[in-house]
C-alpha cells in the first residue's frame, strides 16, 4: 500500500518537477509568478498528439510500452514547438510589460494568457479527453506489492534524465553559470558582460520545453484534456515554493514531495480533493519556512 503510493507519487511528482523547473527559473529571473506556465504543458501534450497523428499514430509499440518511435519523435517536436511558444509569449506580452516596470501587472497578464491559451485549445479540440494510444498498458511487478506500468517506468526514467541534464547544465557550463548569475543579480550580471536578453530567452526555452515534456508524459500516463495544465498550476507553484524560489534542485525535490503528498492524500481524503493537497502543503511551507527547503532568498 505504502509502496504503491510511493510509486504513483514519484511518477506524477517527476512530471510536476519538470514543470516546476520553468516556474522557479522564470520566477527567480523575472520576479513574477507565471500563471500561464501550466498551459505550456497542455500545449506540449496536444502538439505531440497532432505530430503523432501526422505520422500515422503513436507507432508500433516498443516492447511492453503502449507507443513506438512516432511518439518519441512527437515528444521531441512538441518540446521544440512549446519552447518557441514560450519565447513568443514573452516577446509578445511579458517583455513589453516588463518595460512598463510593474512586476505585478505581469501576473495579471499571465492569468489572462493562461485562460486565452487554454480556451484556444478547447476551441480547436473540444472539451473531451484524448489518448495517444489505445494499446493496453502492461504492468510490471516491482516487488513488495508495488506495480507500475512500463509507460510509467519509461516516463520516470526520461524525466529523471532530463532533470539530471538540466542540473548538470546549470551547475557546470558557462551558460548555466550566466543563468544563475543573472537570477542572483541581473545588474551585476550585465556589468560582468552577460547578455541578459539572451539568458531570458534561454530560460523561456528551457522552461517551456520541460513543461511540454511534462505534458506529453501526463498524456502518456493519464490522458489529454484542455484543463490538464491549468490543474498543474497549483502543484507547480507549490513545488517551486517548497524547494525555494529560484532553486532548480529545490523545484525537483519539491515536485516529487508534492507528487507523493497528493498520492498519499487520495486514500485519506479521496481523489476529489487531490488538487487541494498542493495548496495545503504550500501554505504550511509559506507559514513555517517562506524561503523553502533550498532557497537562499527571503520571501
Amino acid at each position: 500500500m505504502i509502496g504503491q503510493i510511493l510509486v504513483d507519487g514519484v511518477t506524477s511528482g517527476a512530471m510536476i518537477a519538470l514543470g516546476a523547473i520553468g516556474v522557479t527559473l522564470t520566477y527567480g529571473l523575472l520576479r513574477f509568478a507565471n500563471f500561464a506556465h501550466g498551459e505550456f504543458a497542455t500545449w506540449g501534450a496536444y502538439a505531440a498528439m497532432v505530430i503523432a497523428a501526422a505520422l500515422g499514430g503513436a507507432g508500433e509499440p516498443l516492447g511492453d510500452l503502449t507507443f513506438g518511435w512516432h511518439m518519441i519523435a512527437a515528444l521531441l517536436g512538441a518540446v521544440l514547438l512549446t519552447a518557441l511558444l514560450a519565447v513568443a509569449l514573452d516577446w509578445l506580452l511579458f517583455a513589453r510589460l516588463r518595460k512598463q516596470g510593474s512586476a505585478i501587472v505581469l501576473v495579471i497578464a499571465s492569468f489572462g494568457a493562461s485562460l486565452a491559451l487554454r480556451s484556444a485549445l478547447e476551441f480547436s479540440f473540444g472539451p473531451q479527453p484524448y489518448y495517444y494510444s489505445r494499446e493496453i498498458a502492461m504492468t510490471v511487478r516491482l516487488g513488495a506489492g508495488m506495480r507500475a506500468t512500463w509507460d510509467q517506468m519509461f516516463v520516470l526514467a526520461v524525466a529523471l534524465a532530463l532533470m539530471a541534464g538540466t542540473h548538470l547544465m546549470l551547475q557546470y557550463t558557462a551558460l548555466g553559470r550566466s543563468l544563475r548569475a543573472t537570477s542572483e543579480n541581473p545588474d551585476l550580471a550585465r556589468l560582468a558582460g552577460i547578455d541578459v536578453a539572451r539568458v531570458i530567452k534561454i530560460t523561456w526555452l528551457l522552461g517551456g520545453g520541460m513543461a511540454a515534456a511534462a505534458g506529453v508524459f501526463l498524456g502518456i500516463t493519464v490522458q489529454l484534456r484542455p484543463t490538464m495544465g491549468f490543474e498543474l498550476v497549483l502543484p507547480l507553484f507549490a513545488a517551486a515554493i517548497l524547494g525555494g524560489i529560484g532553486s532548480v534542485p529545490g523545484a525537483m525535490v519539491g515536485g516529487i514531495v508534492i507528487g507523493i503528498a497528493e498520492a498519499a492524500a487520495v486514500p485519506i481524503a479521496g481523489a476529489q480533493y487531490r488538487a487541494a493537497v498542493a495548496f495545503v502543503v504550500m501554505l504550511a511551507m509559506l507559514l513555517l519556512r517562506p524561503r523553502g527547503l533550498f532557497g537562499a532568498r527571503e520571501a
Partner: peptide
C-alpha cells in the same frame, strides 16, 4: 492573517489556491 505578510505574488498564489480549494 496567514498570507498578507508575504510578498505580493505569494498572496496571488495563495488566494488562487484558496479559491480552487473552496470550489472543490
Amino acid at each position: 492573517a496567514a498570507t498578507l505578510r508575504l510578498r505580493a505574488d505569494y498572496l496571488a498564489i495563495t488566494t488562487f489556491g484558496a479559491a480552487v480549494s473552496l470550489q472543490l
